[in-house]
Amino acid sequence: MLSKRAVSSFVSLLVLIVLVFFLSRLTGDPASLYLPVDASEAMRENFREINGLNDPVLVQFGNYLSDLVRLDFGDSLRKARPAMDVVLEAFVWTLWLAAITMVLVVVAAIVVGSIAAFNVGKPFDRIASVFSLIGASAPDFWIAIVGIVLFSVTLGWLPTSGTGTVWHWVLPIAVLFIRPFGLILQIVRGSMINALGSAYVKTARAKGVKSSPIIFVHTLRNAMLPVITVIGDQAAALLNGAVVVESIFGFPGVGKLMIDSILQRDFNVILAAIMVTAIAIFLMNILIDVAYALLDPCIRT
């Protein structure tokens, strides 16, 4: 099962590498970006020769693959360091950002969603639903800009961008939090309403089980099954690098790195970044499967 998944993921990764390798080379010649505008043709020729850009594209691809087998991902043109080091450095930032955001999202969505489901139609439920709908549909770049204007520029409470202190994390996390929170809250609420109306809850009540174990023991675990799938999707999206949010806040994560590398035609970094995020998402999906199996005995057997 797992090995089958690994093989199919590996094949998709290969296809992706081929596509990105050739497509990125269509964006143009790095020499025109890295050398001064008035650089001579000889200098450009020299630059291309050093970086192996003069070979036919297929030969370049062959070289890239043979390096790849030896786990050599090439060097970053921009930073003159191994591309993988550059990517991993950025990825750690993204991983932290995604992990902290997701933990907050999951806890908040489950708590608020469960309470809303238990109070269907009452004010708490209404308010939670309205906010989650706004959150799930508002564009994050807009929220990010409004956040900066309000909290950084007008009120001066938070830094506008960069890293360094805990305060630098607040705005990016808050902005990334909103959409998955709204989405997951809706799923939790719907799923909990379903579970609370289910036959086994009736049985539990007939057994004399108290309200809190009915919610937290009997229904929550059943209601989590559809929620986990959505959590996985959302977490994968964050791991991919929150391109817009990282760029706006100048956050040195893998999303920003990818955009910069594409703009700078730093081919090796683009490829390395794609491989790292793909593997991270693959591992994430396995985690989701494991969680599913732990929660649902029908899948285990």
Binding site: S198, A199, Y200, K202, T203, A204, R205, A206, K207, G208, V209, K210, H218, R221, N222, L295, D296, P297, C298
Partner: peptide
């Protein structure tokens, strides 16, 4: 609640849906 299950108990028509699927 204290009476339910202790002094008055109930069983239902569809035991599969009335048993919680995720607990032994």
């Amino acid at each position: 609640r204290r009476l339910n299950g202790k002094r008055i108990a109930m069983i239902f028509q569809h035991p599969l849906s009335h048993l919680n699927p995720v607990y032994p």
